[in-house]
Design a protein around this nucleic acid. Structure first.
Lengths: 140, 140
DNA sequence: GTCCTTGCAAAGCGTTTGCACAGAA
DNA sequence: TTCTGTGCAAACGCTTTGCAAGGAC
């Protein structure tokens, strides 16, 4: 996905405002590293746009979600985390530190007979366990 | 899993109070049908225990969660849904009506090479799409 | 007595809504 | 002018916390 934000907006038929672009760019920048909360996005994009409000962050994220550009991940902590939906990957969530790690897409083996009543549009796999860092701190 | 609630509590080393038993029984009763919210549990168990408070429902659920008897499913709606963890199944969530359906366990194909840093404890598969009822109402 | 369970009321906190202002078309 | 994007403040709703009363042991 090397499309520009402007082209993306054209495809989605939304206007590419500065605010939207900054939020998109921030999410793109951190997408390999972590899945930001609204607060993360607010604090970081505010550095470039000091007048930014949290309402706008919510507005923009919800707009992106409507257009399938972003996905909200509901968390046990009640604080959602957001990610761009530009590729297809799975998640590993650590049961100790609760970090989400992107992992290469995990295939599933769906038994079609079980699901002939449903129209499947996508599938998510979440693996849970202990991440490398937490395992290491056990031995420390 | 045909163990009695009393035996379950003995195993978990918690006391089997009437309130806890009623909440457990309600969850057991509806487990095939749906995944109740705190409000569902509160309203229904209150029929048997009129003095029940929502705080107690939260207390009991959190106790059950600590002991891995119950699992909270964070939802897009910010209202968690709860389920007993007595068997192993997967979920189908309808993108239109947002109902959660239990479906037989969907196997995954994990590439171990991708995950040698992580200790996997369990895996969840969530399929999303349109459920039978919503498909039918399209044609109506 | 002590410990544990329960429940009321209040606080906490993430998110949404109402509404107004400013800028673009 | 009309429409759209933004932002403040307030409201909303789910969940947690503080604390006290009652019961079990």
């Amino acid at each position: 996905m090397t499309e520009s934000f402007e082209q993306l907006c054209k495809d989605l038929n939304i206007s590419p405002s500065i605010t939207r672009k900054s939020i998109f760019n921030y999410m793109k920048e951190v997408e390999e590293a972590y899945h930001p909360t609204v607060d993360d996005i607010y604090k970081n994009v505010k550095k470039d746009i000091p007048t930014l409000s949290k309402t706008t962050v919510y507005n923009v994220l919800n707009l992106f979600i409507e257009h399938n550009l972003v996905r909200a991940i509901p968390m046990a902590t009640n604080q959602k985390q957001y990610e761009l939906m530009l590729d297809n990957h799975s998640h590993f969530i650590c049961n100790e530190c609760h970090k989400i790690f992107d992992i290469p897409h995990v295939k599933t083996v769906v038994n079609e007979d079980d699901l002939h009543h449903f129209q499947i549009e996508n599938e998510e796999v979440v693996l849970r366990g202990i991440c490398k860092d937490c395992l290491e701190s056990h031995n420390a």
